[in-house]
Amino acid sequence: MVKLILTRTYWLACATTAFLLVIAAVTGSVQAYYYEIDEWLNPNFYQTNNEAPMMPPADVIALFEAQVPSAEVWYQQVAEEPGRSSMLAVSQRASSSDQVERKLEYNYYYVDPSNAEIIGARSWGKCCFEPENLVNYLYELHHSLTIPGARGFQLVGVVACLWLLACLSLLVRALIVKKGVPWLSLSAPATIIVALIMLPLSISSIAMNFSAEIFKPITSVFSPVKPSVYEEYGSKAEQDFGDRNLSYTDAFNVATVVGAQRDWSQPIGELFYSRAYNFYGMAFGNRDPSGMGNNWLYLSGVDGRIVASKTPAQGTAGDLFYFTQLPLHSGRILGAASQFWVFLVGLLTTALSLRVFFYALARGLKGRAYQQNS
Rank of each mutant, 00 (worst) to 15 (best):
S353Q: 12
F19H: 05
Y230N: 13
Y298V: 00
S123F: 03
T249N: 05
D240Y: 09
Y280E: 00
P312L: 06
T324C: 11
E39C: 03
R332Q: 09
I197T: 02
F222A: 14
A212Y: 05
K366F: 09
A283N: 03
N295W: 00
Q31Y: 03
A207S: 13
K366G: 15
A260Y: 01
D98F: 07
A71F: 00
P43D: 09
P227H: 01
Q266F: 01
A255C: 04
V22M: 14
Y35T: 15
N115Q: 02
W264C: 01
L199A: 04
S91K: 14
V172L: 07
G335D: 02
Y233A: 10
I5Q: 12
I119Q: 06
D112N: 15
Y33W: 15
T17A: 12
G367F: 04
R305L: 00
Q92V: 13
P312T: 10
L352F: 15
G346L: 04
Y230W: 15
A58E: 15
A121N: 13
L347D: 02
A337K: 06
W74E: 06
V257W: 00
I193W: 13
G315A: 10
E51G: 10
Y46T: 09
E232K: 15
S338A: 07
G335S: 06
V307R: 06
G318A: 13
T146L: 10
S97V: 12
L196H: 05
A337N: 08
L41D: 11
S144Q: 07
M282R: 00
V356Y: 05
L171M: 07
A52C: 07
Q77G: 14
T219H: 02
E105P: 12
L134H: 11
L170E: 01
N44S: 14
M198W: 02
P312M: 07
V229W: 00
V135T: 15
I176A: 11
R355S: 08
S338V: 02
L170N: 03
V22G: 07
I193T: 14
S211L: 05
V90T: 15
E232L: 13
K226P: 09
P189T: 03
F323E: 11
S300R: 08
A360K: 02
Q154I: 06
L352K: 04
R305K: 12
L196G: 04
